[in-house]
Design a binder for these strands. Sequence first.
DNA 1: GCATTTACTGGGCAAGGTGTATAGCGATAG
DNA 2: CTATCGCTATACACCTTGCCCAGTAAATGC
Lengths: 159, 159
Amino acid sequence: MAIDRLDGRLIELLAEEPRIGVLEASRRLGVARGTVQARLDRLQAQGVIRGFGPDVDPAALGYPVTAFATLEIKQGQGADVRTHLATVPEVLELHTTTGHGDMLCRLVARSNADLQRVIDRVVGFDGIVRASTAIVMENAVPLRIIPLVKQAAEDPFRP
Amino acid sequence: MAIDRLDGRLIELLAEEPRIGVLEASRRLGVARGTVQARLDRLQAQGVIRGFGPDVDPAALGYPVTAFATLEIKQGQGADVRTHLATVPEVLELHTTTGHGDMLCRLVARSNADLQRVIDRVVGFDGIVRASTAIVMENAVPLRIIPLVKQAAEDPFRP
DNA sequence: GCATTTACTGGGCAAGGTGTATAGCGATAG
DNA sequence: CTATCGCTATACACCTTGCCCAGTAAATGC
């Protein structure tokens, strides 16, 4: 279930240089090609690696503004709100969190003015009681996974 | 600067089936291989596509618990806090947001009990005045980008 | 202790993709 | 009108991939 050091090194290598193939990876890691192939298959089968989708930057697409909105949902309206938010392209992510029917969503917009339009569209829905928005000024730590992978590879067991 | 429909279709195709190569993509899109190659190079040069890093699932790594923590930072301590949080593997993401020195970070942990350890480590730092945590119960909309790509491809111009 | 299973190595082979380059063509900009 | 740009189409050498097999070492089961 857990990953070992070789898995960890493989993931790190793929994260640093996604263009390299199985053969090149095997050379870098000092193992046989079949081993890398088997590890990769296993990691994907286990769901550790979901895929290798392109990492698209919303800012480069014309959406440089990011914000997080906390939404308070009317009891029993959760499913409807989820369905509604799923139809808004600017909603990149939505989580149900602890709290009285609270949700947290990540938004992007073309500008601060445009963010108002997005928020109006998001909260202009019946099940939403209240919303508070925090605009991102700086992405101090961009979404990362490697440090966690390293830790998981070093601590093979958990109690 | 903006992307056109072909770019959009290419990104969608790569998101759906990351394993296909340039040649196969050109067949699916009905264009010449050189075109796909040129588009890909341009998208990467422009920063629209940052890369093709492996998409690792923290849950499969043994960290099934996700939480968001809002941190209130003492004036002038922002840089120190950023440095501190960058050293914590369980901090997957950190944003500086609007508000009185507020930050928002995404955390993962091995269990709810383990989350306490992570939070202690995160907030056990001088510059942090106050912290409030929301545990994710359900990831209603997983991080996605395709709907936004489609919209950006269809609306080539912005005022 | 012995047999079985599993993981890794090292090799080989055919098929096909990649990187790179070139020439032609139509549309657009100056 | 001419230069430029993006796309098509084609070519070629090189290399990777997918798949196969045999041998070995370590872990597992009896």
